[in-house]
Design a protein around this nucleic acid. Sequence first.
DNA 1: TGATATTAAGTAGCGCGCGATTTAATATCG
DNA 2: CGATATTAAATCGCGCGCTACTTAATATCA
Lengths: 148, 148
Amino acid sequence: MNDHNAPDSLLKLDLQVCFALYSTNLAMTKVYRRLLRELGLTYPQYLVMMVLWEEDGQTVSEIGERLFLDSATLTPLLKRLEGMGLLSRRRAADDERRVRVQLTDPGRDLRIRAEAIPEAVACASQCQPEELMALKDQLHALRRKLNG
Amino acid sequence: MNDHNAPDSLLKLDLQVCFALYSTNLAMTKVYRRLLRELGLTYPQYLVMMVLWEEDGQTVSEIGERLFLDSATLTPLLKRLEGMGLLSRRRAADDERRVRVQLTDPGRDLRIRAEAIPEAVACASQCQPEELMALKDQLHALRRKLNG
DNA sequence: TGATATTAAGTAGCGCGCGATTTAATATCG
DNA sequence: CGATATTAAATCGCGCGCTACTTAATATCA
């Protein structure tokens, strides 16, 4: 009868939404993994590079606020990117608790090669831009409610 | 101008959708983590239990098809659930390559306590059922395209 | 039947993502 | 100034999720 307000229906519906989120995220990550392999990056590493390409020299906390990740996740990840020679980590002179993350020349240069990625993902999604934008807005709204 | 077909706009839009998916999934997992802690389950473990509550005695592959996970992920996870006494793993008599997963009495009983979870998550999401259903359908459509 | 191919599950190793804790630097306040 | 609180980053341990590989059982077919 399509009674979305019946408790049972609501509970199952919710379950499906969360699993849809979970499994679609897995599928998305798989697509990125294939595309990012030639850049030698994982998806979270790619996100960090995006944040730095947008604004270089951010602290670990600032990067974490953009990506909703904390230092327990970011510190090892940044060390790997540093090991690849894509960035450098240095304590800030004015506040030695903070670590500023600076792109190296290879790190900046990688942006050119990375610019082909979004188009390839969009192609793999086979969605209209309008659909993707609508989905993005709904996800942002849900994220805000879940985080708040 | 709102020109979604301009290459630059399309690329950025796609990026935002994927990150929205990624970060909303993180937020969703955090909500579940808090709720599932009292059951002693992680979200993927909870998903496996859901699959078995729906149909007991499935093989590792069958569970994997439902959840889009393979044996490299499921075998260790199932061993942990077995270690908790929630299920048992046994080679199938008719085809000894397959492992059938059976709920134990405690595993079946856990369902009662788990039934409060979806409502709590729905409450945390603060969304109308219609919104969640629409989001679910869009995610399923995207997942199908990404996987196919 | 016997050789080969396929299938199901398991293992090893790596990179997240996070709760809990630690270390060190800065801020606050008596 | 000195004691305490707060903050930023790092560390530790665990559970995914995956690629690549291994092992064992079944299927296929000459």
